[in-house]
Amino acid sequence: MLSRTADHLYWMSRYIERAECLARLVDAHYRMSLLPHSTEALESSLRSTMVALRVDRAYREKREKITPRLVLDFLTVDREFSGSILNCLRAARENARAVRGSLTSELWETLNATWLDARAMTARRSSATDTGQFVEWVKERSHLTRGVTIGTMMRDESFHFTRIGTFLERGDNTARLLTAHQEDLMPGADAEAVPDPFEWSVLLRSLSAFEVYRKLYRSVITPFNVAEMLILRDDMPRSLLRCTKEVYSNLQSVANHQSTETERRAGEIHARLHFGRMEDLTSRGVPAFLEEFLNRLADLGDRIATDFLVPVGA
C-alpha cells in the first residue's frame, strides 16, 4: 500500500485513541468533582496529569488559574488547543478523509459523523453536565470506531498500521498517566503504603481498571499493585505489556526489507515487559522505568515512520 496511506491510517487511529484516553481522564475527574472531595486534591491531580501529558505549558499560555472547570474545558472542547478532544476528533477525521478510499465506508462514515456531531454538540453545550455527557459520548464513539475497524476491515496492511497506531498511542497514554502519580512509586517507597486513595482511584477509573483491581487484588488500592497491573499484566487491555505485544505482532505482519531493526526493538520492548518482574522494576525505580519506556516508544514511533510511513519531518 502507499506509504502516505499507511501514514494517514496510523495517525487516524492514534488520534481517535488519544481522544478516548483524554475522554476517560476528563470523565474520571469530572465524576470526582461531583463528590464532596477537597478541591485541592482534584486540582493537584489535574496539575500532575497535565504535566504528564505535556500539555501544561499550552495551558499556562492561555490561563493562570487551575480550576477543574477550566482544565476540563481546555482538554475537552478548546478550539485553539490542538490537543483537545475536539481537535483530536477533527484530526482523526481529516486523516480518514485523506484516505477515505482505503477505508470501509462504515469506518469513514463513523469517523465523519463523529466529527460532525462533536462539532455540533460542543457548539451548543453550556454547562458542566454537558462535559460529562460529551466525554461519555466520545468514549462510546471510540468504542464504535474500534468495533467498526475490527468488524469491517480486511486483515491486510491497512488494518495492521491502524492497530499499530492504536496501541502505540494507548501504551504512551497509560505510561504517562502512571507518570503523573510517580511520587508514590519512588524507589524505597513503602510498597504497603496507602496514599491518597482519591488520585489512584481516578487513575484506575480512567483506565476502566477500578473494578478489575478490586477483583484481582481484593484489597485497598496501593500504588505498587496498580503499577504492576498497568505495566505487567498481559490480560489488562490497556497495560504496557498488552500494548507492546500488539504493536510487536502487528509490526511483524507488515515487515519489509528495511524494518528488521525496528522489529527487533519492538520485540525487545515487549520482551522486557513479558519477562519482567515487579521486584526488578521497583529496585530500579518505577519512574526511571517509565521514562525509559516512553523514550523507547517514541524511538519506535520514529523508526516506524522512517521504515514504512512518511518520515517525521519529511
Binding site: 500500500m1 502507499l2 502516505r4 496511506t5 484516505v99 477515505r100 478510499g101 482505503s102
Partner: peptide, 16 residues
C-alpha cells in the same frame, strides 16, 4: 477518492 476506490486503484498525490 470515489473513483479510485470504485476502480480499486491507488489514489496518489504527487509526493507519492
Amino acid at each position: 477518492a470515489f473513483l479510485a476506490q470504485q476502480m480499486g486503484v491507488e489514489l496518489v498525490e504527487g509526493q507519492d
